[in-house]
Design a protein around this nucleic acid. Sequence first.
DNA 1: ACTCCGCCTTGATCGAGCTCAAACGGCTGC
DNA 2: GCAGCCGTTTGAGCTCGATCAAGGCGGAGT
Lengths: 230, 230
Amino acid sequence: MLSQSISTSAPGGRKVAPAPAATTDHFDVLTGHAGLVASEFIYRKDEEIYGEDETAEYVYQVVRGAVRTYKLLSDGRRQIGAFHLAGDVFGLETGMKHRLAAEAILDTTVRLVNRRSLEQAAHSDVRVARDLWSITSGELRHAENHMLLLGRKTAMERVATFLLEMDRRLARAGMIALPMCRRDIGDYLGLTLETVSRSLSELQAKGVLGLSSARQILLRDRHQLAVLNC
Amino acid sequence: MLSQSISTSAPGGRKVAPAPAATTDHFDVLTGHAGLVASEFIYRKDEEIYGEDETAEYVYQVVRGAVRTYKLLSDGRRQIGAFHLAGDVFGLETGMKHRLAAEAILDTTVRLVNRRSLEQAAHSDVRVARDLWSITSGELRHAENHMLLLGRKTAMERVATFLLEMDRRLARAGMIALPMCRRDIGDYLGLTLETVSRSLSELQAKGVLGLSSARQILLRDRHQLAVLNC
DNA sequence: ACTCCGCCTTGATCGAGCTCAAACGGCTGC
DNA sequence: GCAGCCGTTTGAGCTCGATCAAGGCGGAGT
C-alpha cells in the first residue's frame, strides 16, 4: 500500500504528496535561506525512510510525526541513536551514505531537499554552510550525552534522563504524549522493554510521575528526576 | 612543575613550547590551507588540556602522544568519548564551550589554533568551512558506532571492537602499542578495568592475540575478532 | 641490586538487569 | 457487543559483568 494519498513523481521510487510538490517556502530550520526546492512526503507507521549504508540523496525535516534512526547488529540487536520530532532535521551526511537507518514511528510527514542542491547552496552562502555544520554539531552533542548515559548510567537514571529529554522536546500543557513504544525506548536507552516498564512503574509508585495511559505521562516531580539524572 | 621545557607566552596561563611559537606551516589536516597561526604545546601525562564546560578558545591537533576526552557524573563515574591520536583534531566546537574535558594520556605535543581565526578562515574560504564540518561529522560517525557498542554489545564484543579500532589507528609493524591503561579502556567501553583485563586474557588464551607486555598487543586472528565485532 | 609503587591479573561473590512466562487492558474490526 | 491482537505490566529465576579482595609484575628511583 502506498504511503501517500496521491502519487505523482518519486525520489527513490517513493510517491510524492499532493499539495506542495515543490515549494520555495521554508526548510527554514535547515537553511534559514530560500532558493531551495523542498517536497513533502508522508511515511506510514514503521515504514523505512532510508536504510543503513543507503546512498544519501536527501536531507529531511520532520513536519508532523516522529522518526527513529538506528543501527542493527547482525543478530537483530538494535540501538536507536536518536528520535527526531517535529522541526528536527535528520539524514544530513558529509559522506556518501547514511550511517543509520531511519523509520517513521507513526504516520509522519517530512519535508525533504536534495542533498546536492543543499551543498551547492552551502558553497555560495557561508551562512548555509555554518547551519549545516551546526546541525551536525548538535547531533554530536546529543550523541556525546547519550554515550555517557549508555556507558555509565543505571536503568533508573537512563529512564529519568529520557523523561526529562521528552519533557523538554514534546511536552504540551504539562503532558508528555510519547509517540514510541516501550521497545523503542529500551533500544534507545540500551535496556529491555521490561526494564523500561518496571522503571516507569516504580516512578509512578513513588509519585514522581502519573501515567494516564501507557504513553501519556505527567511529570509530577521534575526535581526528583533531575537528581536521578545527575 | 611546568609542562614545557622553555616557557614564553601562554594562552590560558599555559607555557609555550620553544621552537615553533608561530608557524604558517600546516594544521594541514584541519584546514588544508595556510594563513593560520598555529602554536605547539606539550602537556604532561594526565594533565588537563581543557575542562568540561570551559570556554572553547582553541582547536587542537595531536602531534605526538594521545588524548582522552570524557564526561563525568557527579559521583565520579566517567565515560571516555574518544581517544585522539597523532594527527587527530579535537576540541572543535560550534558552541561557546567544550562539551567534554580533555586530558593527555601520556606526555603529548599538540598544535593549536585560535578558534576565532579558524572561523574567520571558514567565512572567507568555503573549503575550510567544509573541512570543519567534515571533522565534526567524522566525530559524529564515531559516536554513532560507539553508541551501538555501549548500548548493545557484550563485554567481549566491545573489547574486540576496541582492538580492531586500535589496530587500524595505531598498529606499527603489526603490533599495537596502547598508550592508555586498563581503566581508560574500561571507561571508554562502558566496562570495569577487571572485565577488560579478563577479556584480553581470554583472547590470549584462545590464541586470538598475544600480549608481550600489558600494552603491547599482537593480533594473531583478526578474522576471529571481526566475527565478534559483528 | 633493591625497594617501592602503580598497574595489571586473577579469584570469589554479588546483584542489576535480562530472559522467559503469563496475564492484563485497550483498541480495532467484525 | 464481542473477539482478537498488540502493547504493556508484572512475576520468577538466571546470568553477565560489577564489586571486593589478594597477589603478581615491571619500571623508576635510590
